[in-house]
């Protein structure tokens, strides 16, 4: 791999890592959700510093152009992240629904009590 390519990729990943840590610091990202991202940053760094890893995987699966291996890995990773996002929203939607029902049932009781105390 050309040194210039290596350097620009490295700068890109480091900037990305900086973004993740800034989000963490500002508490705009929960630690438990950031672990996947940090893991992927580590994987990207390994691939940039030791491209042999990518070459090895490529030959293992018979992929002729190593860059395609990188694309496949990135796409797989994004699928995992998207699935985990859908899972998170599903859990949140269920919690939100349950809370809205609690609130409605509670409001009903309060309304009845107020009516009783008026009478």
């Amino acid at each position: 791999m050309e040194f210039s390519v290596k350097l620009s990729l490295l700068i890109g990943v480091l900037f990305y890592a900086f973004l993740v840590f800034t989000f963490l610091k500002k508490e705009k990202l929960d630690l438990k959700y950031s672990l996947l991202w940090i893991f992927f940053i580590a994987v990207m760094l390994i691939m940039i510093i030791f491209p042999q890893v990518v070459y090895f995987i490529s030959s293992l699966f018979g992929i002729k152009t190593p860059v395609n291996t990188v694309f496949i890995l990135v796409i797989l990773f994004m699928l995992i992240i998207l699935l985990s996002l859908t899972s998170i929203t599903s859990i949140q939607a269920r919690n939100l629904k349950s809370m809205a029902q609690d609130l409605a049932l509670l409001e009903y009781r309060v309304r009845l009590m107020e009516k009783e105390s008026e009478d």
Binding site: L96, K97, A100, Q101, L103, A104, L105, E107, Y108
Partner: peptide
């Protein structure tokens, strides 16, 4: 009636 705070 019960009044839901959001549309479920």
């Amino acid at each position: 009636f019960i009044d839901l705070p959001i549309n479920l």
